[in-house]
């Protein structure tokens, strides 16, 4: 298939919202190449006419009725948050001081 470079690792880390330092990038280049080399074995098989299997069982759509069920008490909803006030989850500011950011 293809060989993974340092810039590929950096790109994928960005998509995955992970911060990779030099050492981690080096290590992942080696590991991902070794793992993906092993997976290249799949190319031995001709799967042109095979349907992909997305799930372990044939699934049909399962719906629920449009009925309101009880929500969580707000204290319980907010309880596990690293920071919150009486009503809301709180987070660091979304725009940083220079006006850029997310």
């Amino acid at each position: 298939m293809s060989t993974i470079s340092r810039s590929d690792v950096a790109y994928v880390a960005g998509l995955a919202q992970l911060d990779m330092d030099e050492a981690a990038t080096e290590r992942l280049v080696a590991e991902m190449n070794s793992i993906l080399d092993y997976m290249a074995k799949l190319n031995e098989l001709d799967t042109e006419s095979v349907e992909p299997m997305m799930h372990a069982m044939a699934l049909t759509n399962v719906f629920r009725e449009d009925e309101v069920t009880p929500s969580l008490p707000r204290e319980l909803a907010l309880r596990g948050a690293p920071t919150h006030d009486d009503e809301y989850f709180t987070v660091p500011k979304i725009l940083d001081a220079e006006g850029g950011g997310a």
Binding site: V68, T69, P70, S71, L72, R74, A77, L78, E87, Y88
Partner: peptide, 17 residues
């Protein structure tokens, strides 16, 4: 999920897991 879509509810009261 079964949480209400009621518009005027206080923040984070129409929420569930």
């Amino acid at each position: 999920c079964g949480c209400s879509t009621n518009f005027d509810a206080p923040a984070n009261t129409n929420v569930c897991p």
